[in-house]
Computed example of a mutant assay.
Amino acid sequence: MKRLIVDMDGVLADVYSQFRKYEQLDLGITQDEASLIGKTEREAFQHVRTYVNTPGFFLEAPVMPGSIEVMRQLNQQYDLYIVSSAMEFPLSLYEKYQWLQQHFSFLIWEQLVLCGSKKIVYGDIMLDDHFKNLDHFDGKTLLFSQPHNMKRDPGKHQRVANWQEVQLVLL
C-alpha cells in the first residue's frame, strides 16, 4: 500500500479564511481572495504571528470543502498520514490535534504527525501547499493551490486546485 502524506493548514484546514476573519474582526479589513494572490501569509495579513498565537485560531478553522469525504476514501486505499508543522506555534500543537479529532475522527492517533520540519518525512506521495515542504520530498508531489503559490510555476509538482481534483488524481 502506498504511503500518502497530507498537510493540514491550507490543505485540510482553511487557514486563509481564518486569517481574513481575524483581520476583519481586528482591523476591519476585508480582503477578497484575488487581492491575496502571489503574497505569502505574512505579506497578505498584518498580524499573522499574533493570529496564529491566539487561542482558537487553529481549533476553529473551517474545513476545506470536500476534504472529509475524499480523505475517508483515501484512508481506505493508502497508508495515510496527516503531517503538520506544529512546533513553531506552541498553541497549535494541541489545537491541531483537537481539530483533526473533531473533523477527521476516522483517523487514528498513529496517523497524526505534528512536527517541526517535514524534511524527515518520507512516503510515496505528498500533498501540501508549500514548495518548501514539497521540494525535498523524493516521491510524487501534489501542490494544493493557495493564494501564496498561485503565481509560481509548479515545476516538478502536480498542481491540484481543490479536493475534487485530489480525488481525480489519487482515487
Rank of each mutant, 00 (worst) to 15 (best):
M1F: 09
R3H: 09
R3S: 11
L4E: 08
L4T: 03
I5Q: 14
I5M: 14
I5F: 11
I5A: 06
M8T: 13
M8A: 10
M8K: 10
G10L: 13
V11M: 13
A13H: 05
S17Y: 08
S17N: 11
Q18H: 06
R20F: 04
Y22S: 07
Y22E: 09
E23F: 07
Q24I: 06
Q24N: 12
D26R: 10
D26L: 11
L27Q: 11
I29G: 07
Q31L: 13
E33F: 10
E33K: 11
L36I: 11
G38A: 05
G38I: 04
H47P: 05
H47S: 11
V48L: 07
T50A: 14
T50V: 14
N53G: 07
T54S: 14
T54I: 03
G56W: 06
F58N: 00
F58W: 03
E60K: 12
E60C: 05
P62A: 01
V63A: 01
V63D: 01
M64S: 02
S67L: 02
S67Y: 02
V70P: 00
R72G: 00
L74P: 03
N75H: 12
L80R: 00
Y81F: 15
Y81G: 00
E88L: 13
E88M: 07
F89K: 09
L93R: 04
Y94S: 14
Y97D: 11
Y97E: 12
Q98S: 08
F104D: 00
S105P: 01
F106H: 05
Q111S: 04
L112C: 04
L112Y: 00
L114F: 10
C115T: 14
C115Q: 01
C115I: 14
K118E: 08
K118W: 08
K119V: 06
K119T: 06
V121G: 04
V121I: 15
Y122E: 15
Y122D: 15
Y122R: 12
I125C: 05
L127A: 10
L127K: 08
D129E: 05
D129A: 01
H130G: 09
F131G: 08
L134I: 09
H136G: 08
H136V: 08
F137P: 02
T141R: 12
T141K: 13
T141A: 09
F144S: 02
F144K: 08
S145R: 15
S145L: 15
H148E: 13
N149W: 12
K151A: 13
R152I: 10
D153W: 11
G155V: 06
R159I: 07
R159D: 14
V160Q: 06
V160L: 07
A161M: 15
A161R: 13
Q164C: 11
E165V: 08
E165F: 02
L168E: 14
L170Q: 03
